[in-house]
Computed example of a mutant assay.
Amino acid sequence: MILILGLFTIGEISAQDFKRINYQLDFGTTLTIPYKSTIEIWPEIDKHPHTDYSPNFGYFLEVMISYNLNRKYSINTGLNYNYTALGISDKIGLFENKGNLTNSYLTFPVLIKCRLSNKLPISISTGPYLSLLISANEKGTTYIDTAGFIFDDPDPLLESIEPIQKYNTDVKKNYSAIDYGISLQLDYDIKLSQRLNGVVLTRFNYGLKNVLTNDLVNNSSANDWKNYNFMIGFGVKL
Rank of each mutant, 00 (worst) to 15 (best):
I2F: 13
L5R: 07
L5N: 14
G6W: 04
T9A: 13
S14W: 07
S14T: 14
K19C: 01
R20T: 15
R20E: 12
Y23M: 07
Y23T: 10
F27M: 12
F27E: 00
G28W: 04
T29W: 11
T30Q: 01
T30Y: 00
I33T: 12
I33K: 08
P34E: 03
P34F: 09
S37E: 14
S37L: 10
T38C: 05
T38H: 13
T38P: 00
T38I: 11
E40S: 07
E40H: 05
E40W: 01
I41Y: 06
I41C: 01
P43E: 04
E44H: 09
D46S: 13
D46M: 11
K47A: 11
H48R: 08
P49T: 08
H50C: 03
H50L: 09
T51Y: 03
D52P: 01
S54L: 09
P55Q: 03
N56L: 09
F57I: 15
G58S: 02
G58H: 00
F60Q: 02
L61F: 14
L61G: 13
S66L: 07
Y67R: 07
N70A: 03
N70E: 05
K72V: 15
S74D: 09
I75S: 00
I75G: 00
Y81G: 00
T84A: 05
A85R: 12
S89W: 10
D90I: 07
K91M: 11
F95N: 08
N97T: 14
K98R: 13
N103K: 10
N103V: 03
N103R: 15
S104Y: 00
S104N: 10
L106S: 03
L106R: 05
T107N: 06
F108S: 02
F108H: 01
L111E: 13
L111A: 05
C114F: 11
R115Q: 15
R115E: 14
K119D: 11
L120H: 11
T126M: 11
G127N: 00
P128N: 02
L130D: 02
L130C: 10
L130I: 15
I134F: 06
E138T: 06
E138D: 02
G140I: 03
G140C: 03
T141N: 08
Y143F: 13
I144G: 02
T146D: 05
G148V: 04
G148M: 02
I150N: 09
I150Q: 12
P156T: 01
P156G: 01
L157D: 14
L158I: 08
S160G: 03
S160Q: 05
I164K: 11
I164C: 00
T169H: 13
V171D: 05
V171R: 01
I178E: 04
I178S: 05
I178L: 14
D179H: 11
Y180C: 06
Y180V: 08
G181R: 06
I182L: 15
S183C: 08
S183Q: 10
Q185F: 02
Y188G: 04
D189K: 12
I190E: 03
I190P: 00
S193Y: 08
Q194T: 13
G198P: 04
G198K: 04
V200S: 13
V200P: 07
R203F: 05
F204A: 04
G207K: 05
G207F: 09
V211M: 06
T213E: 15
N214C: 00
D215R: 08
V217Y: 04
V217Q: 08
A222M: 07
A222K: 09
W225N: 11
M231F: 10
V236I: 15
K237W: 03
